[in-house]
Amino acid sequence: MKWKYAAIASIALGLAACATHPDKPAGRDVRIVQPDPAEQAAEDAQVQRVVEGVRMIQQGRIQAAIDGPFDEVAGYYEKKYRGHTDTIFSARGMPDALLYSTVAAKDKHIISSRVIGPAWAMAYWGRGYAYNEMARYDDAIVELDKALALAPFDTQYNIEIGFAYQRKRTWEESLKHYEVAERFARLTADDKNVADMTCKALRGEGYDLVELHRYPEARAAYRKCLVLIPGEPRSLGELKYIDRVAGPEATP
């Protein structure tokens, strides 16, 4: 099932502030899978394979990362869940697991769902990241859409696909994903990375808004980043650029 991000955002935004265990509607099955030790070890091993693939990209072995770790992990889960009737979500931790289970409980089109660990979506993200590094943006979008089908509000995945659309100069689509990335950073990013990931999303928004000539909104995005990370150099540079192309901001 490919999620329609705008269609579900209104549901999810109301839940983001306080994700709690959902009330299960009659006849519906919403489960967060708690793996046994053997399953957890297998999941951890798959996560480590994705991490290995990322290291390979950083070493310049991009195609090898796609053909090796990312394909292996994606294939493992595709085989495991082939023919499965549940809608599957792939969560990083309990906050986004609760978010996805709550959204599933409220979606009348989902009869049964389960929330598993992060490795499956990470593998698709890894392939998308690799294709972005190769400037194969259409291929990146295909893979990142798969990641977002499993984890629609994940900040990292939305940033990555926002970048791909940005490189294709598809500003509105890019902006939509960066906005989702910003809104859900505190639920889907590691605690130590929330400010950094939120700032990346805001810079992506700002760039798109400049290209759309929506300069006041772009300034606001960069300033929000500077609140999170004072003195952040890219935001400061972009604000100076906006002053050059749009003129200094009018003072009251």
Rank of each mutant, 00 (worst) to 15 (best):
G68L: 05
P252D: 00
A119W: 04
W125G: 04
S112K: 15
D71S: 13
I8P: 01
M94Y: 10
Y76D: 04
R223L: 12
V51F: 06
E232K: 06
M56L: 14
K106Y: 09
R31W: 10
L239T: 01
C199M: 11
I141Y: 05
R244S: 12
P118R: 14
G247T: 06
E249N: 09
A104N: 04
L187Y: 00
R92L: 12
G83K: 07
Y157C: 03
H177K: 11
R183Q: 15
D71V: 09
T85R: 14
E43T: 02
P230T: 10
D96W: 02
L226V: 09
P95S: 02
D23W: 10
C225T: 02
I62D: 04
T251R: 11
K146N: 12
R31L: 13
K176T: 12
G14M: 00
V180K: 00
Q48N: 15
V103C: 07
A246Y: 00
V142F: 09
R219P: 01
I32M: 08
I111P: 05
A195R: 12
Y137H: 15
A147V: 02
V210E: 01
N158G: 02
Y100F: 15
F153K: 03
D86Q: 10
A64H: 00
I8T: 04
D107W: 00
E232M: 04
Y165K: 07
A7N: 11
K108I: 11
D154Q: 15
Y76I: 07
N132G: 09
P252Q: 01
V54P: 06
E238S: 13
S10W: 11
L98F: 06
Q34S: 14
I229Q: 11
F153W: 10
R203S: 09
